[in-house]
Design a protein around this nucleic acid. Structure first.
Length: 577
DNA sequence: GCCGTTTTCGGCCCGACTGTTTTCAGTCG
């Protein structure tokens, strides 16, 4: 059982308890446990078998949670969860996703009107039955119908690149409409999460009312969800929600801290503040004893007064960053300027658009010392994958291009398919002629976790494999990762001196941040690759760096920050870490 | 359910907006 499965069950327990109006603090504990488990850098099933104390020592995992994890790992079920599922129809739970509808109302509809599914809710609202209940009226009923419609239409989260682009355009729009003092995007966009659920913009300006009205009149706003004195929410045509908060200059830093989150980070920070005799909210840091405001204008001041170094937004996820910061043991996170090359890109030889020379020129322009050309292998017929002969011709072309391009080293590579049983799509003989071998799964995604794990591990045993490409195959917002026991794959990579890829394409970002941290803690090296299919895509590197930072990586964890000579040693497996 | 340099019991982050009220409950972030 993988961490995310265990986490999902705790989250569902919390949902059910919420509808039953159970103790809110108990509910919060289950949610917190779910979040901790999902973010863990080791697998709970391994820990249960080897060292349960490792779990128990985490703040937020107590006796009860540990017992339930143990039960889940050993039996695949948990009695309390099974019992709760009997008491509340599971069809009730998706209703929690509806905007402005929470457990209290859902429970009310269920008790009073026997509404137990989205469809029944829609029917009851259509028949104007909801408005007869206490606290309900005509408007609430209409809102629920709208929320059902939105739920069916909206796909939920958006890719980070879209989130960044939309927030930058909203900022430019506001700057063109009003006299802005300071403005910034907060939330998951600022934390550079792989997907974003909404956009948070903070602004200080001359005239707050004008900011709100300009915002709600944005030409791309399809809906205004709220519009108050200091806060407004709109839904953009693309389906993404955007929130604006208007602030005083003296609170900008506090608001930036507050709205950057994550929620888990803020809760932990507030607990610390409280222990130290302070109170934090979006307006500032205040002394508990006399209410005096001691910080607020700059975000840095808040961390400084709490006796912490500045914590980069990318790692503010409540994954132990505050404790590490307190000990001054946060890693020095990798930065864009550390990258010296790009080890995964395609050309017109297969499904890329540009030539070897054009990719090399683009690499040199990006300031790289080296690139690797890694086209597809023959199993990927759709992409015109290379067979042994084709690859030999490609090798000759790369040598030629390399001779003509003294500015940058062009490494000879391939992205070779991992076939059904874990064998590779090209012979060892031809692979041995290459500098870089990226091995990737592009087919048969539906294997069981066990089969997929052994398939990938088998491929990693090939002595020519250097990098496991996009290790879980996910496509953000479109395709779930295939099931695989990542801890086993990481262990196998370490044994065989293979690196794991962070595929920087914004729809992949795979390895995920959590798995990056797991890999680095287990002593495995990574490579951040753009997987470019044309020269424009080299810029995707930045998204891979965001993911690496979110995974607590420093430049030493990432082989394409190494000078060429050191990189070559790693690729020849003479050196590792 | 979790936690403890005030506590093994009694707390648990906090403020804005909306719709329903006529002082507040529910929801959200």
């Amino acid at each position: 059982m993988e961490n995310k499965d265990v986490a999902a069950i705790f989250a569902e327990i919390a949902d059910i308890l919420e509808i039953q109006e159970g103790n809110p603090f108990r509910i919060r504990s289950f949610r917190r446990a779910a979040q901790i488990i999902e973010n863990l850098s080791f697998s709970v099933s391994g820990a249960i078998q080897e060292d349960p104390e490792k779990l128990r020592s985490i703040s937020g995992i107590g006796k009860g949670t540990l017992q339930k994890i143990k039960e889940l790992v050993e039996t695949g079920r948990c009695q309390e969860h099974e019992k709760l599922k009997q008491q509340v129809p599971p069809s009730l739970l998706p209703m929690l996703e509806l905007q402005n509808l929470g457990p209290k109302k859902i429970s009310l509809f269920w008790r009073e009107l026997n509404v137990s599914s989205l469809e029944e809710l829609e029917e009851a609202a259509g028949q104007q039955k909801l408005r007869t209940l206490p606290g309900m009226g005509e408007k609430s009923e209409a809102k629920i119908l709208k929320a059902i419609e939105d739920y069916r239409r909206m796909q939920g989260r958006f890719q980070l690149d879209d989130g960044i682009e939309i927030s930058e355009s909203l900022i430019a729009y506001l700057e063109s409409k009003i006299s802005v003092h300071r403005i910034a995007a907060a939330g998951s966009v600022r934390r550079r999460r792989d997907t974003v659920g909404d956009i948070d913009i903070l602004v200080t300006c001359e005239d707050p009312q004008k900011a709100i009205s300009a915002f709600v009149q944005h030409p791309d706003a399809s809906q205004v969800l709220a519009s108050g004195d200091t806060k407004a929410s709109i839904v953009l045509r693309r389906g993404l929600q955007a929130d604006l908060r208007v602030l005083e200059d003296e609170s900008f830093g506090a608001a930036l801290q507050y709205f950057t989150g994550s929620k888990a980070h803020n809760v932990a920070l507030r607990e610390r503040a409280k222990r130290m005799g302070y109170k934090i909210n979006e307006y500032g840091l205040f002394q508990t004893r006399d209410g005096e405001k001691v910080a607020g204008e700059e975000e840095e001041d808040i961390y400084r007064l709490l006796e912490l170094p500045f914590i980069p937004p990318e790692i503010r996820e409540g994954r132990g960053e505050i404790e590490q910061a307190e000990k001054r043991e946060l890693p020095l996170l990798i930065e864009g300027k550390d990258i010296r090359g790009d080890l995964h890109m395609h050309t017109e030889a297969t499904d890329g658009k540009d030539s070897i020379e054009e990719m090399a020129t683009a690499g040199a322009k990006a300031g790289y010392d080296y690139i690797a050309i890694t086209d597809h292998s023959k199993a990927l017929a759709m992409a015109g994958g290379l067979d042994e002969e084709g690859l030999l011709r490609q090798i000759a072309k790369i040598d030629q291009a390399s001779a003509e391009n003294p500015k940058i080293e062009i490494l000879k590579g391939i992205e070779v398919d991992i076939l059904a049983e874990g064998e590779l799509d090209l012979s060892d003989e031809v692979l041995s002629k290459l500098d870089v071998v990226v091995a990737s799964v592009h087919s048969r995604f539906n294997l069981s976790a066990k089969e997929m794990t052994s398939r990938i591990c088998h491929a990693l045993e090939n002595r020519y494999v250097n990098i496991l490409g996009h290790p879980t195959g996910r496509l953000l917002t479109r395709r779930e990762p295939y099931s695989v026991e990542m801890e086993e794959v990481i262990e196998k990579a370490r044994e065989n001196r293979v690196c794991l890829e962070i595929n920087a394409h914004p729809s992949r970002l795979d390895l995920s941040d959590v798995h990056c941290r797991m890999a680095s803690e287990m002593g495995v090296l990574l490579s951040i690759n753009s997987d470019s299919h044309n020269t424009q895509m080299l810029r995707y590197m930045q998204y891979g760096i965001f993911t690496a930072r979110r995974g607590w990586l420093s430049s030493n964890d990432v082989i394409n920050t190494y000078p060429l000579e050191r990189l070559r040693k790693v690729l020849k497996k003479e050196e590792y870490g």
